[in-house]
Design a protein around this nucleic acid. Structure first.
Lengths: 337, 337
DNA sequence: TTGTACGCGTTATCAA
DNA sequence: TTGATAACGCGTACAA
């Protein structure tokens, strides 16, 4: 039951004028007489005329649309970023098409392809964990579609990036733990090849070294979710020299640790400090409230979008690459001294 | 530096054939000779030809795009729904444009308008709290754009709806509390005029009445976030006859209650039972783990999308209205007996 | 087997 | 002040 929407032609026919006249009247062109304008405007309003964005885009070669490729919408961090992107896009009069990869490489590629078919003006992307080949992104850039990577960037590709200062964020947090008296600090990280994972690990190691603390591999583990944290933490606590603090690369993991530690009867933060990363909504809600490194997802989204718009609207040399770094900040709550 | 993408015309010119020949070759039309086809396909592949979705949409009057209007992307429930929508849309070959209202009426209206300009094939919407006039949705429907409301529906408008069985969900949960020995059950709800709020309240009241328990207004309060729960709960506990159980319309609120109750030194669930709604990721992570009513956001999104597709692709009489109800289920964890 | 012409909805250009 | 025309990229009915 597809009802065709009313067009300029329809208005023209009904009013016995030329389509071009209607177009000009609607655009408030100075050449059009007051009477014709009023006539057209009244008719358009009555029949709820809405310009066809497709036809407009085709004519102007400008879709006023940007595409977002991200791993998972449901994650707090990514949905925060998306929210920032959408708010900023709407302010600038751009539409937003989303494509979630669900961490599946093939779907990410398909998404990039579809966005290009849609002739988006630009793409904001955060790559899937399984992605190791980046030609789908390179193809976008080669076709003249600006791409800005956020968070999970793509080192192989020369383009704008917006990242959080993972390294400094972790280092600051770990130093805080050290300064509050912790000496055996465990690190729960991701094994991935992605820069963010490496940066966080380095931030941890360097903080220890800076304070002359031995980097003990037995305190470092691959663990980045709640369930695994429940499974792994008991053995950590049973070490001959157990940790007196934990740093986790996300808040779910930190809460897993917290729950195990509490169940063991250890006092938080008196005997064990815990610090997470992201500053998820859950950090504030946990008990005791979780100390965490705020990743400012919303701001990252808004910043990425603004960067992309600079490109799209020609406010910047296109061959100039910008790397924005979003400052993290440590939100000290109750799981640390 | 907007580089124009390669078109069928470009290919035609380079290969000295007519555009229509290229078009047919790309579509694997039987009339085209093998040689020409191979020639065209090879050239297209080499130059990374991608069909222009705009031109195609304009020709076929079919954008293969759907629009989503929702209050806030960052909420766990809504991002779950969105994820379900996107997955189902991608399966069916549809693009997804998002528009978040941030609970602001004017922005919701603008979103509906923009989606109509984009000539979306259909719209999935959940209305803002501040929305009391619905003409922007009616206008979509009047223009032949099918609309499916999810969760926060619009009673004034005759169209498909997908809701969770709030009433039954709450009733079941409250009955569970009653059956496990609770008698003074507090209710933390929303004051809104929206059906979901009313349904939940009725589910609560009816469960009590069914079991011959007096509906005590002093146990019912307007409270639907963590902070307010921290503020309000102490006075609840100081009532002459304090509650022995709490039901909250979302999980953040339930956790606020939980934290206050624990701080008071009351045993959960021995002295006080607590039940939330949504079954947020945080429910599993809290300590003790929160009993909650699972709202199945992802499934709601997927179901809504499928319903919309039935409409769009003509698999259903367009004047027939469908109300889908997503069954909730009570996930009993550790905050209830 | 391939080419020509048209239309989808719009606006800029030129002509009247 | 208004109208006719062409073009954006594509597919298809019709002609060759």
């Amino acid at each position: 039951m597809k009802k065709r929407q009313i067009t300029i032609k329809d208005i023209a026919k009904s009013l016995n004028v030329a389509p071009s006249t209607v177009s000009r009247a609607l655009a408030d062109h100075p050449d059009i007489s007051k009477e014709t304008k009023e006539l057209v405007l009244a008719f358009a309003k009555e029949h709820k005329y809405k310009p066809n964005a497709l036809a407009l885009s085709l004519r102007t070669s400008n879709t006023k649309t940007i595409g977002v490729i991200l791993p998972q919408i449901v994650h707090f961090f990514f949905s925060s970023v998306l929210s920032g992107i959408e708010d900023e896009a709407e302010k600038a009069g751009y539409r937003v098409i989303i494509s979630q990869s669900n961490e599946v490489f093939e779907r990410e590629v398909r998404g990039a392809y579809t966005l290009q078919e849609s002739r988006v003006c630009g793409v904001l992307a955060s790559v899937a964990k399984t992605t190791t080949s980046f030609s789908h992104f390179q193809e976008l850039i080669d076709s003249g579609v600006p791409v800005v990577f956020f968070d999970r960037i793509c080192t192989g590709i020369l383009t704008d990036r917006v990242v959080v200062d993972d390294y400094a964020g972790v280092q600051t947090a770990v130093e805080y733990l050290i300064n509050t008296g912790c000496r055996r600090i465990a690190f729960y990280g991701s094994e991935s090849h992605m820069p963010i994972s490496r940066n966080r690990r380095m931030g941890y190691e360097d903080a220890l070294r800076k304070h002359g603390i031995f980097v003990d591999k037995s305190l470092m583990t691959i663990c980045n979710n709640y369930k695994d944290a429940l499974a792994i933490t008991p053995s950590m606590l049973n070490l001959p020299e157990p940790p007196d603090a934990f740093f986790a690369v996300n808040d779910e993991t930190a809460l897993g640790i917290l729950n195990v530690v509490k169940a063991k009867g250890l006092k938080v933060p008196d005997q064990v400090s815990i610090c997470g990363f992201t500053n998820n909504a859950i950090a504030e809600i946990s008990n005791p409230q979780l100390t965490s490194v705020d990743q400012h997802g919303y701001e990252m989204g808004a910043t990425s979008m603004r960067l992309l718009l600079d490109h799209i609207e020609g406010r910047r040399e296109s061959d100039q690459i910008v790397n924005k770094i979003i400052k993290t900040n440590l939100v000290v709550r109750e799981t640390t001294r």
